[in-house]
């Protein structure tokens, strides 16, 4: 599994840039980012190359941040692969809370990041069905 950061951000102009500027100033590479339209505040999810360092820096700058594990699955860029993976998860009776992706990887296939209520079981069923589940060092 990989590490993702969940950051509390307020719904106001410049709040995402506030997070990314701290990462940039400290030379931390952002691999993936996800946030959706919510009325008051948002949980911003990011994947970076140095998650522990990023957490400390963000916390020092007043952000509420949490590191959690996430399942990242390597998917070939051909029609139907995402559908195959989602079917495996559904057949294992696991609900998906959210999903986003890492598209740019040097000479490697994109990664889909998926969150369910049972991450261990998700990894197991995906591996049993031949999916490649990435670890932090695979990023």
């Amino acid at each position: 599994m990989i590490k993702q950061l969940s950051v509390f951000v307020q719904n106001e102009v410049g709040s995402l840039a506030g997070v990314t500027s701290i990462l940039k100033e400290n030379n931390i590479n952002l691999k993936a980012i996800a946030s959706f339209d919510t009325p008051e505040f948002a949980i911003l999810r990011i994947v970076v190359d140095q998650p522990d360092k990023a957490k400390i820096l963000l916390a020092e700058n007043g952000y509420a941040v949490k590191i959690t594990e996430a399942v990242a699955v390597e998917l070939e860029d051909v029609p139907g692969t995402l559908n195959g993976m989602l079917t495996v998860i559904a057949e294992a009776n696991l609900g998906i809370n959210y999903i986003y992706s890492i598209v740019i990887r040097h000479k490697k296939a994109p990664l889909i990041i998926v969150n369910t209520d049972n991450l261990e079981k998700t990894v197991t069923v995906l591996r049993e069905n031949g999916y490649l589940v990435a670890d932090q060092e695979d990023l």
Partner: peptide, 14 residues
């Protein structure tokens, strides 16, 4: 002000 980071798992907890 939110002080407990563990709630950042989901919107439901917040």
């Amino acid at each position: 002000e939110l002080a407990d980071e563990s709630l950042l798992d989901s919107y439901a907890k917040l």
